[in-house]
Design a protein around this nucleic acid. Structure first.
Lengths: 137, 137
DNA sequence: TTTATTTTTGCAACATAGTTGCAAAAAATT
DNA sequence: AATTTTTTGCAACTATGTTGCAAAAATAAA
């Protein structure tokens, strides 16, 4: 396990290669979608302590290796941040049927008129609806 | 206290006029901005039980009388939903300095390209930056 | 490759957020 | 004023998240 992208990611951020970090990054790397803490935890067979999990998420978030998306009712999901970039305009799509959450690669134009004096730094967009699979049914 | 908009709102939704509901609506009506549960609770002098508070928020949310905005790290705020409308495109501005959250009245054009097969129902936008007051400093 | 240093882990204890069942209290109805 | 319906407050509970600290693991140094 874990001799691929996970280790390189950790190394490039000067983070130690611990089991929990590698595990989370492996899981997120394999799955193309955002996952909840519990989904990740299960796939790791509950191998790690709750505390370690939270601390690991915190570290990965601080290093912009993953990001955290919160939808509506506290549904929190995590996803790999491809190039550990600090993104300013992120679009997420949340399927109300299958509850899948995917990151939408840009190519969207946006123009939000803010009141005088307001300055935007980041914009977070969550589009809710039905995904391709669920639309076909 | 409470013989104005709060009561009318409740009445039009067939909800009983209880102290907690009137209180929350009064507070949100007076303040032009979104407030956290605790901010509201304090202004009401901790007059109500925790449980009652949660249940009241739930009721008001279900009736679209208020809405709930979650920013970043679990910061949850509530705001009056002016006409109890079920809005599809809502823009919120969150000031990173003073932590104020305001609803932006539309007049923004948006065009997000979703992948083939994806259908959007609602879009939630949170713009983060500095508000007019904080920009002047 | 063994030792020393630094970081991370797991545990216990705690803090906050949110929910449920149920009897008592308050609204609305008659 | 009496009855019905909804809401409240309490206790108990679950989920989520944090902190301090000794033991363990990962890296660096000898």
């Amino acid at each position: 396990m874990s001799n691929g992208p996970a280790n390189e990611l950790l190394q490039s951020h000067n983070l130690r290669k611990t089991g929990c970090r590698q595990g989370i990054l492996d899981i997120l790397g394999q799955s193309g979608e955002a996952l909840t803490e519990n989904e990740i935890k299960e796939k790791l067979d509950n191998r790690h302590d709750r505390t370690t999990f939270y601390r690991t998420f915190k570290t990965l978030l601080e290093n912009h290796i993953i990001h955290k998306i919160i939808i509506d009712n506290q549904l929190i999901k995590y996803a790999l941040n491809p190039d550990s970039e600090i993104e300013n305009d992120h679009v997420h799509f949340y399927c109300k049927e299958c509850e899948k959450l995917v990151c939408i690669e840009e190519s969207s134009s946006m123009d939000i008129n803010l009141p005088r004096g307001f300055k935007a730094a980041e914009t977070e967009i969550i589009v809710k609806g039905t995904c391709n699979t669920c639309s076909e049914k």
